[in-house]
């Protein structure tokens, strides 16, 4: 990755983080991955990390940096997990959800 691109990426993340910061009374947001969201909790996607071929389907379905995701719950056996994103209810396997990095507001 070129320097300029890295820079652009950081700037983008910083923007999201700042936005979250102001909302959550300037407390630093918690960084985690999508699979760690508890049902009812929401998070903002920061980044996707993994093999390009695996990620393209996630991106097409709207899992993109900046998107807000709400966890709905999990299937009875604990996997897959269900999320609400851009108005749709989507199921993801935990191993794919782990590729989505999110920022959550710290618990009140």
């Amino acid at each position: 990755m070129t320097r300029s691109l890295l820079h652009a990426k950081f700037a983008h993340h910083a923007k999201i983080l700042t936005a979250l910061n102001t909302k959550a009374a300037r407390e630093p947001p918690l960084m985690s991955t999508l699979d760690s969201l508890r049902p009812g909790q929401t998070g903002t996607i920061v980044d996707l990390d993994g093999d390009e071929a695996e990620l393209c389907r996630l991106r097409e379905m709207g899992f993109l940096p900046g998107a807000i995701v709400e966890a709905i719950g999990s299937a009875p056996l604990g996997d897959p997990l269900a999320f609400f994103v851009r108005g749709s209810r989507l199921a993801l396997r935990a191993r794919d959800a782990r590729k989505v990095r999110i920022a959550t507001a710290p618990a009140a």
Binding site: D51, E54, M61, R89, L90, A91, L92, K99
Partner: peptide
Amino acid sequence: GEASAFVMELPD
């Protein structure tokens, strides 16, 4: 084939 992520919609 490439292991694309499994995304399934749960419609209304």
